[in-house]
Design a protein around this nucleic acid. Sequence first.
DNA 1: ACTTTCCGGTGACAAATGTCATCGCGGGCC
DNA 2: GGCCCGCGATGACATTTGTCACCGGAAAGT
Lengths: 203, 203
Amino acid sequence: MTPVRVLLADDEHLIRGALAALLGLEDDLVVVAEAASGPEALAMARAHRPDVAVLDLEMPGADGVSVATAIRAELPDCRTMIVTSHGRPGHLKRALAAGVRAFAPKTVSAQRLAELIRTVHGGGRYVDPELAADAISAGDSPLTAREAEVLELAADGAPIAEIAERASLSPGTVRNYLSSAATKLGAENRHTAVRLARERGWV
Amino acid sequence: MTPVRVLLADDEHLIRGALAALLGLEDDLVVVAEAASGPEALAMARAHRPDVAVLDLEMPGADGVSVATAIRAELPDCRTMIVTSHGRPGHLKRALAAGVRAFAPKTVSAQRLAELIRTVHGGGRYVDPELAADAISAGDSPLTAREAEVLELAADGAPIAEIAERASLSPGTVRNYLSSAATKLGAENRHTAVRLARERGWV
DNA sequence: ACTTTCCGGTGACAAATGTCATCGCGGGCC
DNA sequence: GGCCCGCGATGACATTTGTCACCGGAAAGT
């Protein structure tokens, strides 16, 4: 039986190296490539055509979900899974929409991760129960596209004038969108609105 | 020669387990205890009296620096070192002030980490050059104690009235502190001030 | 055809915020 | 003693912001 060929992408050497060593001990798994950034992960996937790509969610260049989307488009036979330290409900939703087969926090053991890789390779799916519960209770984003966009531009605390300029909108319009977004999120001002939207993964 | 006894504290199983396995391969190192939270790390340190404690910076319960401080107070012979994913200048400074012997990002390899543990055990010190450069260029915090305190309470975007209540201060005083803090940081409002202070690790 | 929803905008008004001057108090420092 | 600085507060003022009402157009569903 040929072993499962795995691509490992994580910007933290410590984790990636350690993980590669541990997974290498499993005799039905073989790590064929490693990457430390989003673009690099994609390039490695193209070059090595792994069976399963294990992607960190937060990576420089491009996040795990974008990489997963790109991989699915180019290599339909390659299953993708996401591993992350701080999983937020919206991320899980986006990941599943992108065709990711598994979504797990980094609090799982290497043993468990190896099992997940086998599950995913066999066509199965998996999402961390706790994250799933959060995602369900958080529900869908009530924000319209523009509301989310403006909220994102407001994320660094910029004044409305600057947001309006960057969004090519009237300052009044920006205020209206921010106001309605804050109302929908139950926040008393746009800054807490940004924080709430971030927590739910809606931005 | 007796091996170096190591305590490993990190809330991410994946990393901790993998790391424990890798460090275990080095025949002059032995992982005598593992912990997944700040308090647990302290308890483990008390129980097993390791030579070196490798602490993650961000852990539930208590962060790495607090744990390091507590360990130094109770077990003066135990050297401490911090490993972190996102190192900010101020954290490094706080860590060194707490008597931490080494400060490294998680982008180092396990091999390198093993070397660092040996270095630290031998009485040496180490800080990541890049983080050190950031810390030096960031300089010292220009904020007074109250300014920092009020800024921290403003972190979640709460209105001034709420901050004043939580700080047991007059709303006017809070505004004055926030204003002076924002001026010192070169921010145009308290929210960007909070962000800047966070980036520099001053809150 | 009618209704609903989102986009983009304007105007007006109240509330929150930023900024400045000023005060008294107390602790260091020269 | 005199000086500087931080703390805590007050008042005044301009600006920013949140909130609401309302408008017109475009797209989509009934």
